[in-house]
Each structure stands twice: as structure tokens, then as C-alpha cells.
Design a protein around this nucleic acid. Structure first.
Lengths: 157, 157
DNA sequence: CTAAGAGTCAACTGTTTTAGTAGGGTAATA
DNA sequence: TATTACCCTACTAAAACAGTTGACTCTTAG
């Protein structure tokens, strides 16, 4: 089921970075690509896509770059992943936002797999639609802080 | 994220069918393929794989066919999906059963995406590892019964 | 008003996965 | 010993993934 593509991982990493500099002006594609180790032309395509979807805005010319359109606390992972990967549900017929009848189940209403996958979708959406970029950044900071505290502590043993 | 392949859907359909005839002797590949609308050579490969993993057993010659190894109440969807699709986690580094360090996150311990995907994995596993073939068959029967009751009811309005 | 900075865009390419097909081999039973 | 039925390898077409190429256009400073 490994379903998060590299593209989505790149997208999320780029957005975490933009979240951290929100309100401080635009960031260069080149800088983002460098710092997050993402092939620059690929990142360009990714950001362009996010721009078309309204998640980020861009500025051309000197002092240009990309920035989040909304505060990081208002962007959920669910939104982002849906933009890049499509529906969260493991099957199109189990999707809430983009339901598409499944070619596989002849009797759509009594497809057992579908009913269970609907539960999986709901559980996944409950997590991803309530987790924002800001929360992820905080989580990363907390974890780093704890790790560092432990490392420091180790030296004293 | 649509991550359930046709192969897995076929596998599950075949297993539901075998679950319904558990204890009544083996079922022919040809019959399974016909009834579940699965290309027979593909189904053969699927069943062979399940056999290697110990989920089903086969008998050759006249009166042969395939049957579940264990009672349908003891086989979970989690087991089956892991066999066919691999780990339930959206990222290899978020897997409990088959952890594999992620090439993408330089600092594995502070990867935000990983931490959230771990939550998604846990929620998914909680559902799939507690749902058995028998439960799915029951769910299908109940749903069919309700649908039929409604259909009948409609005629009386 | 023009040069440099910086994003925009279409089209192409190599690799991997998916969803099969083809065709013969092997074991069990009547 | 013929028939039934599973076993196995190898091949392939199409789609998805992970990029690359190269030309283009807009913005701003000087």
C-alpha cells in the first residue's frame, strides 16, 4: 500500500519550509530545491501545480519567489495530499470527495471490500484533515528539542 | 492515494468466495474465475501466491481445487493485503511490520511526514487487522438483506 | 528602456509497476 | 494410463512515476 509518491513527499517538504518563513516574503525555487534536496526542475513543476490550485503564490523578477497563500495553520495535509495524489480512499468507490463507481464490484451497494475501505478512508481523513502544516512544523521542533536534550544528557552519564 | 490494485481486489473477492464454502471441499479455479469475473490465468497466479504464503491449500486431479487453510474467522484483511500489496503504511519508514529507512528524509527521527503517516498506518491497521473474512461476508449478507427488505417495502407504498 | 533576475510551460525520456497472456509441465485419481 | 486440474516460466502492452530539456515571459533595478 505504499502510496505516498516522491512527488508528494517533495511537495510536503517544500510546504513545511514555506510554512516556517510565512510572512517573511517569498522564497526562491533555487533555495528551496537546494535546502530540501529536491531536483530543481521537478520542484518547479510541483510549485506551479500548487500555484494553479491556489495553495501558493509567486512573484517574478528580483526579490521574487514562492510563498504560502494562507497561514500554515489553515492548510491541512489532507488538502495537499488530495491535490497531488487524488482521493484519500484506497478505492475510488470509497471516496467521499471524488466518488467514482468501481468497475470491479458488479453490485456496488454490497461490495464488502468497499465497505471496509470506506472505514479506512474515514480514519485516514480524520487524521489528515485535522493536521495542519503548522502542527507538523511544531511536531518536528518538539521532536528535535527532545532528541537534542537526550543527546546532551548522554554526555553527562 | 488509490492504493488497492486490481490484483488485491481479485484476491479478496476470491477469498470471500472460499470463505463461504469453507468446510465443503475444494473449489475449482475455473469456477472461481467464472463466478467472480476474474481472468483465469491471473487468478491462478494469485492463488498460487496465496498457497505459497500458506493462506490456502490446493488439491490436484479430479475433485481438486482450492480451499482456505484456516477458518474464515481467523483470516484478517490486514494479513491478506500485506501479502499482496506489502506494508499497510503509506511510507516504508512508517511501517511497523516492514520498517525500511526512507531515502527521502535525511533526518529520519525528525521527519514530520513520517510521524503523521505513522498515525495513518496505525489507524488503518487497527481496522484491517481486526476485520476477518467471516466478518466481511456477514456484512455483505446483512447489507443485501436490508437492501432486499427495502426493495420489497417499496412495492407496498 | 534594457539587462538581469526569476518564474512559466510544453514536450520528451527512461524506468518501474500493473495487468495481464501464452504455452507447456507435473501431480493425482478414476 | 488417460484425464482432470493445478504449477510454473517467460513474455508483453499500457500506464504511472520521476524526472530532464530547452525555449519563453514577466518584473524590477539601474
Amino acid at each position: 500500500m505504499t502510496s505516498l509518491s516522491k512527488k508528494t513527499q517533495y511537495t510536503l517538504r517544500a510546504l513545511y519550509a514555506l510554512a516556517r518563513t510565512y510572512g517573511q516574503g517569498p522564497t526562491l525555487i533555487a533555495k528551496l530545491a537546494e535546502e530540501e534536496s529536491i531536483p530543481q526542475p521537478f520542484l518547479e513543476a510541483i510549485l506551479l501545480n500548487l500555484k494553479r490550485e491556489g495553495l501558493v503564490e509567486s512573484k517574478k523578477g528580483k526579490g521574487g519567489g514562492y510563498a504560502l497563500t494562507s497561514p500554515p495553520g489553515e492548510v491541512t495535509l489532507g488538502q495537499v495530499i488530495r491535490l497531488v495524489e487524488g482521493p484519500l480512499a484506497p478505492l475510488p468507490c470509497a471516496s467521499e470527495t471524488k466518488y467514482r463507481r468501481c468497475e470491479e464490484c458488479l453490485e456496488d451497494r454490497t461490495c464488502g471490500t468497499k465497505m471496509i475501505m470506506r472505514q479506512v478512508r474515514d480514519a485516514t481523513a480524520a487524521i489528515l484533515d485535522h493536521t495542519t502544516l503548522a502542527q507538523v512544523c511544531d511536531l518536528i521542533d518538539e521532536t528535535s528539542a527532545k532528541l537534542h536534550a537526550n543527546d546532551t544528557f548522554m554526555y553527562y552519564i
